[in-house]
């Protein structure tokens, strides 16, 4: 099992997440797709960590998870406020700054 297998798998996962971010309209689905993107990056980090014999890649995964947790917490709070105030969830409908 070589490094390239894991890198290709990570690339496929990243592509799926990217397509999800582009094609989905709902804020929650966009956040879920962002989780896929971060997971793909994590897989590449761990694969390189194994190939190079260096544990720093796994530390980076740890930090990525912390950033993902903070991002999801604030993002979902914003989604809740958005639905409470406008009743809509679409990313297309966020035109509050333009009047």
């Amino acid at each position: 099992m070589t490094l390239n297998h894991y890198l290709i798998l990570s690339g496929i996962l990243f592509t799926i997440g990217l397509v999800g971010v582009i094609t989905r309209r709902n804020v929650i689905m966009i956040l879920l797709s962002l989780e896929i993107l971060l997971s793909a990056a994590n897989l590449a980090f761990v694969a390189f960590s194994r190939a190079l014999g260096d544990l720093s890649g796994q530390l980076m995964v740890f930090f990525v998870m912390i950033v993902a947790a903070a991002e999801v917490t604030v993002g979902l709070a914003i989604a809740v406020v958005l639905v409470r105030q406008t009743g809509k969830m679409g990313a297309d409908e966020l035109r509050g700054l333009k009047w």
């Binding site: 994590n42 761990v46 796994q58 995964v61």
Partner: peptide, 14 residues
């Protein structure tokens, strides 16, 4: 997959 790569701690916190 993380377990297969030998990253046990990362697999657990995942």
């Amino acid at each position: 997959l993380f377990v297969l790569l030998g990253a046990y701690f990362v697999a657990a916190i995942q």
